[in-house]
């Protein structure tokens, strides 16, 4: 904060010596130390009231923080996806394997295509039999029910679903092609869901941040009311507005810190409770997915954010209510 505010300025009409320059900085810090100690003492002298204020702030932190964690987990899934979409082209019945191979080579030469692979329907049937151990069932079939297939890999730089969709439609125009399947839909959908979630997180974070500021503002306002006489006296004996503000700013920071501490506990509790069902869900998709929780950095960020928000909230309240108190 403003350092110079503690040192006497030019106004020295009576020629008194109240400036104790050599140790001005020293005493400035010692005053800060004294202020936060006495402010902290005040807060723990009313444990219940302080706890409730912190709890309200903490709870307001939890929702946006959980959403942010959910988001970062979804994003880590997206990062693991290599970005490749695959288009499966089913060829019409009766198209000879040779023609299919030629078509596949033709498609591979296109600019927006990375590679393309022709899969013979006989080969596919063999693989199918082996993979699903349906030897007998397949043997009963008179003819191969599978069509020839071409697996097309669009260029990796194409991320938007519209682009890939367009390629798919173009490929459908070949007379040999019966149908096409785009298997990236879910990733793309996840992408747009993420975006919606991201915005939602921001909006909720913003609203709850505002709520925190309002709650704190009110708490600080009450604290100011309670200490009106003290403020008046301090101003009468030469206390600057900065000096008078200081304990309330500390108070706001303490509330913010306490609030984010409570939020941290609640978040970790929630993650702990969510971990098992999420593991089960992941297993059912043959996947091992670990819910990544709260890193050290995120914890630090949460605490710093809480303190800053508390400081800022009380600064607003103090600006509004405190500077008006003039001794009479």
């Amino acid at each position: 904060m403003r350092k110079q505010s503690n040192q006497p300025k030019k106004v020295n009409p009576t020629g008194a010596n109240t400036a104790h320059k050599p140790n001005a900085l020293n005493s400035y810090f010692s005053h800060h130390q004294k202020t936060y100690k006495s402010t902290f003492k005040q807060l723990i002298e009313q444990p219940l009231a302080s706890f409730f204020t912190c709890a309200v702030i903490g709870i307001a932190f939890v929702l946006p923080a959980l959403l942010a964690i959910l988001l970062s987990n979804i994003q880590s899934v997206q990062h693991n996806w290599d970005g490749s979409a695959q288009i499966t082209l089913f060829l019409k019945k009766g198209v000879p394997a040779l023609d299919g191979g030629i078509l596949s080579e033709k498609i591979a030469k296109r600019q927006s295509i990375t590679s393309s692979l022709f899969v013979d329907n006989d080969a596919a049937l063999v693989e199918f039999k082996e993979r699903f151990e349906l030897q007998d069932a397949v043997d009963y079939l008179d003819e191969n029910p599978l069509p020839h297939v071409i697996l097309v890999q669009p260029d990796k730089s194409l991320k938007s679903i519209q682009h890939i969709e367009q390629i798919k439609n173009n490929l459908l125009k070949f007379p040999e092609v019966e149908g096409a399947l785009l298997d990236v839909m879910w990733v793309q959908r996840l992408n747009s869901i993420t975006q919606v979630l991201q915005r939602t997180t921001w909006v909720i974070a913003l609203m709850l941040g505002l709520a925190i500021i309002l709650i704190l503002g009110n708490t600080i306002r009450l604290a100011i009311e309670n200490r009106k006489e003290e403020i008046t006296v301090v101003k009468l004996v030469g206390g600057t507005n900065a000096f008078v503000r200081r304990p309330f700013l500390y108070m706001g920071a303490f509330y913010g810190f306490g609030g984010s501490l409570i939020a941290w506990i609640l978040i970790n509790l929630t993650l702990f409770m969510l971990n098992e069902p999420i593991q089960d869900l992941a297993h059912s998709y043959q996947s091992t997915f670990n819910l990544s929780g709260f890193s050290f950095e995120s914890t630090l960020l949460l605490l710093i954010l809480g303190m800053s928000l508390g400081w800022f909230g009380s600064w607003l309240a103090v600006r509004k209510h405190l500077d008006d108190i003039e001794p009479t």
């Binding site: 006497p8 300025k9 106004v11 020295n12 009409p13 009576t14 008194a16 109240t18 006489e229 003290e230 008046t232 006296v233 101003k235 009468l236 004996v237 030469g238 206390g239 600057t240 507005n241 000096f243």
Partner: peptide, 21 residues
Amino acid sequence: QRQIPYFRRHIGVVFQNHRLL
């Protein structure tokens, strides 16, 4: 207005109702 605190530091004041904390 903002210089008033520094000005007041050169004046000692005793109030009728003490104004102690």
